[in-house]
Amino acid sequence: MRGRVHSAIPILYQKLESRIERMSGLRKAKKYDWKDSNLALFGSDTEKSVKKESAQTEPAWQKAGKSVGIQIWRVVSFKITDWPKEDYGKFYNGDSYIILNTYKEEGEDELQYDVHFWIGAESTQDEYGTAAYKTVELDTFLNDKPVQHREVQGHESQLFKSYFKTITVMKGGAQTGFRHVKPEEYTPRLLHFSGTRKHVEVREVARNEASLKSGDVFILDMGNTIYQWSGSGSNKDERMKAMLYLQGLRSERNGRPKTEVLEEADTGKSHEFYKSMTEEAEDEDEQTEGGDETKELYRLSDASGKLSFSKEKEGDVSMSDLDTKDVFILDTKSALFVWVGKETSTAERRNAMSYAHTFLSKTNHPLIPVSCVAEGHRMSKDFQTAIAA
């Protein structure tokens, strides 16, 4: 049995279901509120509050995990809906998604799973609360085999990024469409390209000069006109990816838009590209990147008769540092892992993710990826990398 903490999830879900009937839509939050993110709802407890029968009645799961590959669903008004395969790798910052990766280890026939829920920066608590709950439900449907992960926009794990050659994040939500938009009705958008040949990320940013970075490439999509702005320090991979993206946009519109490639050093501020930079600048992300990379291991235990949370170790961590009777939280500063021993108490299991959430909210890296790891179950590749054998 997997050590997850969702004793509060059924209550949350009942509230979500009761609100469906009295809400015609979801009001978007200004930005992902990581201090009140319902992270504690991610996971499950030993009493299996998420019933197998409930999981089996969810239509979206009927074809889940049947064969090797990626499957994606989006949360729309508390419901789980299929995400078109042609849009895999494309996400809206106003939505939350569930991503299932089904695969086989080399030389083995048994199917293995990783299930992620991805939180857009402007997704509502209702949406990512539903995504968290449904992630547990999907895990239950697949007999507790998946490793669960939380992903936050802009801070995705390497495992998550490996699923897509390009990740594109656009502004908007469930009512917005990637396709079938007439160029003359198009709302201009500025797309930021950054990365390497192996993985380039595309993110819609504010049409403001402050968004432009000399080390990257940008596309200004105005519908009938598309500009590619190449920063003086951008690399060939970013330029090539942007060019292919630009060609794809033009193709989708039957070749009607005219295109122009602009070099930063050769483009004056009187150019139409700069005149279109009329939006307000975006706020900087609250998460601090880089800095201290020292691993920290914490223990959650009730051996004394009450729950205690304490730092166990700093520096390199090995499996020998873990005790089957307790819960351990490993913070690598780029990812956080909750390891649940087979002999942990009910209180420890139920409170594991809540303590992890509280801990993260007080750090300068609250948005890092989070994974649940249960003793005796398959360890994620990221966890194997983070901890010595």
Rank of each mutant, 00 (worst) to 15 (best):
L142S: 08
F42C: 04
K313I: 01
T288W: 09
M170Y: 14
V50H: 09
V50W: 03
G25Q: 12
D283H: 08
H149L: 14
G94C: 08
R253Q: 12
P59I: 03
D95V: 06
S44P: 00
L111V: 12
Q14R: 13
K182S: 02
Y92I: 02
R299Y: 10
W83C: 02
F141D: 02
H116S: 15
R239H: 05
R203H: 07
P257L: 03
F42P: 00
L41T: 06
E280F: 04
S162I: 11
H116G: 08
G223D: 06
T140S: 10
Y298V: 02
K85W: 03
E272V: 11
K269E: 13
F383I: 11
P59Q: 11
E86Y: 10
D292Y: 07
I72W: 01
A389D: 12
C372Q: 11
I70W: 01
Y245T: 13
L249M: 09
E296L: 07
N93F: 07
S308G: 12
Y298A: 05
Y133D: 08
I387M: 03
Y92P: 01
W229E: 00
R74C: 04
K52P: 03
D139F: 12
A356T: 14
R349T: 15
K295I: 00
H192Q: 08
S67G: 14
K342A: 14
K241F: 00
D316F: 13
K362A: 10
G223Y: 04
R74D: 04
K275S: 10
V202N: 00
W73H: 08
S54E: 14
Q384N: 11
D316Y: 11
V200K: 00
S320F: 11
R349N: 11
V181E: 07
E272M: 09
G231K: 01
L41Q: 05
E286R: 10
N38V: 03
S24L: 05
D87E: 15
K31S: 09
K63R: 15
A356K: 01
T176H: 12
E110C: 05
D144V: 06
M379I: 04
Y103N: 08
I387A: 00
S371H: 13
C372L: 14
L220T: 06
F42H: 13
M222E: 06
S276I: 01
E289A: 14
F359H: 12
T324M: 10
G177T: 12
D326Y: 04
S361T: 15
G43Q: 03
T135W: 11
R203M: 12
D114L: 08
E53F: 09
G290D: 14
G43I: 08
E58Y: 07
F178N: 03
R150G: 02
D221I: 01
E21N: 14
K104D: 04
K66Y: 03
T278Q: 13
K325V: 00
S361R: 09
L322Q: 01
Q158Y: 12
G268Y: 10
I387C: 01
F328W: 05
V205S: 06
M1I: 09
